[in-house]
Design a protein around this nucleic acid. Sequence first.
DNA 1: TAGGCCATCTGGTCCT
DNA 2: AGGACCAGATGGCCTA
Length: 227
Amino acid sequence: MCGSSTTGGPSSSSGALDQTNFAPFTSSSTEEGQIPGRRTPLGAVGLGGFYFQGCQPNIASHGPPSDENNPDPADSTQTNRPQHSRASQNSQNANPSKAKNRQGKSVRLNINARERRRMHDLNDALDELRAVIPYAHSPSVRKLSKIATLLLAKNYILMQANALEEMKRLIAYLQGTAGGAAIVAPPGFDLQGFPAAAKFLQQQQALQAENARNNEGGNNGGSAGPL
DNA sequence: TAGGCCATCTGGTCCT
DNA sequence: AGGACCAGATGGCCTA
């Protein structure tokens, strides 16, 4: 049951990922020719299945698919169809049912191609997700599995949310305690990567400058001195 | 060799 | 009707 493997997978793999281990897989000596976890070449997996190959050995050797993989029930009599597909194609023009059968096959091929494209898009999106979540991006490090990518991304989002909350609390604290004192970034602290904090500091400095001007104006115009 | 992961095929269901 | 989405089935590849 391959399906059960995926259902059981998350619980087991999430445990490892909860440890914020960003390189869950150990490096291995594979590479060359085939990157582990990489999409296998279409031909290697038997592109087109029964409908492309006249008789695909690796699949046709298995009993069950013969009937189940048939596109339509009307075709169920052709369990050995692949063997003589060419010959049957030549005679299809004379037989309406076979012509319809061939059309059914082409429809099925279109559906298969669409599904393949859809899965490729999904995998592309997963690749983009892998690119932005923090883990060891290296040729020597095995690519994150799909489930590991999703779980790691989820944890990363939660971590970022927590960091954001913490930052908000810190800013609120600074706003509350700063009072009239000048707020400056610590020496050597680069605010380039913190636009929100930089903006906040700019606002504070502008506010203080304005207060200073007001005080100055008040001093000039009035007799009351600063406190 | 077993288990994990993946790609593909396939039929069903829902939506436009 | 056609397309998107989904889940099950199947077989291949890789690793421990």
